[in-house]
């Protein structure tokens, strides 16, 4: 992994302000040249279940962090609740880290996965 250039907080700001804002792209879809994936691989942000944070709280966090509409946020929340985990985003490693950081700011447990891990 390349060393960070900016601190996590400074890097997270544009991410949160712009999440889901690009026309034509859902928040968990990123338009990237194939070469980018070839170098960095597609990474998945996976949220794990915890017995503490309420369903309403998790829905709110998904809407806030990823810009999901409520039905989509609720679908991911239910997946976390019923299956123990939900893949909420996939794309480049660096941006996946930013999302994981944002989720941890909200005290959710998130892990990053790539195909190589399985």
């Amino acid at each position: 992994m390349s060393p960070p250039v900016l601190t996590t907080a400074r890097r997270a700001e544009p991410l949160l302000a712009g999440a889901g804002a690009r026309p034509g792209l859902a928040p968990d879809e990123v338009a990237l040249p194939e070469s980018a994936f070839a170098v960095q691989g597609p990474w998945r942000v996976v949220v794990l279940n915890d017995p503490v944070n309420s369903m309403g709280y998790v829905v709110l966090v998904f809407r806030k962090v990823f810009g999901f509409a409520e039905p989509r946020a609720r679908r991911h929340m239910l997946e976390v609740h019923e299956q123990g985990r939900s893949v909420v985003w996939s794309g480049l490693r660096e941006q996946a880290e930013l999302y994981a950081f944002a989720l941890q700011q909200w005290h959710l447990t998130a892990v990053l996965e790539t195909d190589e891990a399985h």
């Binding site: 960070p4 907080a9 994981a100 950081f101 941890q104």
Partner: peptide, 26 residues
């Protein structure tokens, strides 16, 4: 102490420490 554990074991150690410090500050 961070309330929720940091789960990203494979990130760079320096970056991880910065990450932890920012989470703790928040």
């Amino acid at each position: 102490q961070i309330a929720a554990p940091i789960t990203l074991d494979d990130i760079d150690a320096d970056f991880r420490e910065d990450w932890r410090a920012e989470l703790l500050g928040g």
